[in-house]
């Protein structure tokens, strides 16, 4: 049991281990510029539509968004939820899709001190990014839109 739990928890190592798989995913599409206004990003990234079921899977996937590493979420089949960030239950009632989008894309625009990674931040801003990730965002535009589509359902 201990072995299993520790393995499924280890977020850092997993990010590293699955680095190349993810890099492929985000390489599929060039970086799309985005604009924020009033603490929100009104237009979907690259004009894409999101899929809530894929977004839910991504949120729990330690190779993907791994939002569960930091946030308690209504994903009960997963035993371990992080406590670093606030619970995301009810987020869709508190924020619009546009507001949620900015928080996933670059939470640092709201709180410059935050630990939360900017999942679709301009990669040119990163400090000492490893060679294989050069010019790449953490999540693809499609993945961000899938997450937005899922979070708006959390009323």
């Amino acid at each position: 049991m201990r072995g299993r739990s520790v393995r499924s928890l280890l977020w850092l190592g997993l990010y590293a281990a699955c680095a190349s798989a993810l890099a492929d995913a985000s390489a599929q599409q060039a970086y799309c510029e985005w604009q924020s206004a009033d603490f929100a990003i009104a237009s979907p990234l690259c004009g894409l539509d999101g899929d809530p079921a894929r977004g839910r899977a991504l949120a729990a996937d330690s190779h993907g968004g791994n939002c569960l590493a930091c946030h308690p979420m209504p994903i009960d089949e997963e035993p371990f939820h992080g406590t670093i960030g606030p619970p995301l239950q009810g987020i869709g009632a508190r924020y619009s899709a546009a507001q949620i989008r900015l928080r996933i894309v670059d939470e640092k625009q709201l709180n410059p001190m935050t630990i939360m990674p900017g999942f679709y931040r301009d990669p040119a801003l990163a400090n000492r990014i490893a060679g294989e990730f050069w010019g790449k965002t953490f999540l693809s535009a499609q993945q961000v839109e899938d997450l937005v589509a899922y979070l708006v359902t959390l009323k």
Binding site: V6, L9, S62, N66, G82, T83, I84, I115
Partner: peptide, 14 residues
């Protein structure tokens, strides 16, 4: 971020 600001909190199950 992890070892000062958020020490003591859970990162997934750790």
């Amino acid at each position: 971020h992890c070892h000062v600001q958020h020490q003591g909190q859970m990162l997934r199950g750790q």
